[in-house]
Simulated assay, not measured.
Amino acid sequence: MTTQIDREAVAIGRAVHGAVTAAGLSLAEAAEQSAIPLTTFSRRVNGRLPFTFPELVRVARISGVSVTELATSAERILQSNAGPASEDRVPA
């Protein structure tokens, strides 16, 4: 069964991934430091589940960016019409 992936969830996941890696963190480190179980964090980064606002606040804090910067990055990703979400999955 194929799940429809929300474009916005994919975009914010990509923005989070970019912020986390730019901060020099692995996804596992970011998940631990933001108190999100790794499997959940991976699903959120891949756009399969949306991030909650409190989670975005924690991720922004550990990444050294603001929530506004994450949202702006996600908006740019949406506007660029990056490829299909299923091809852009990020491993945990």
Rank of each mutant, 00 (worst) to 15 (best):
M1E: 13
T2C: 00
T2K: 07
D6W: 12
V10T: 03
I12Q: 04
R14W: 07
H17V: 02
H17P: 00
G18W: 03
V20T: 05
T21A: 07
A22W: 06
A22V: 07
A22Y: 01
A23C: 15
L25V: 15
L25K: 15
L25M: 15
S26C: 09
A28M: 13
E29Y: 05
A30E: 06
A30G: 13
A30M: 06
A31D: 02
A31H: 02
Q33S: 09
S34H: 02
S34E: 01
S34Y: 03
I36Y: 12
I36D: 11
P37M: 14
P37F: 14
L38C: 13
L38N: 14
L38I: 15
F41R: 09
R43Q: 15
R44Q: 11
V45D: 01
N46V: 04
G47L: 08
R48F: 05
L49Y: 08
P50A: 12
T52G: 10
F53A: 08
F53T: 07
F53R: 01
P54I: 06
P54M: 01
P54R: 06
E55K: 09
L56R: 00
R58M: 10
R58I: 04
R58H: 07
V59L: 05
R61Y: 05
I62R: 03
S63E: 01
G64R: 10
G64D: 12
V65Q: 02
S66M: 15
V67F: 03
V67H: 00
E69R: 05
E69T: 11
E69S: 07
E69C: 06
L70F: 05
L70W: 04
L70N: 07
S73G: 04
E75V: 01
I77S: 02
I77K: 00
L78Y: 02
Q79P: 03
Q79W: 03
S80N: 02
N81L: 12
N81Y: 11
P84Q: 07
P84C: 04
A85C: 08
D88W: 08
V90Y: 08
P91Y: 03
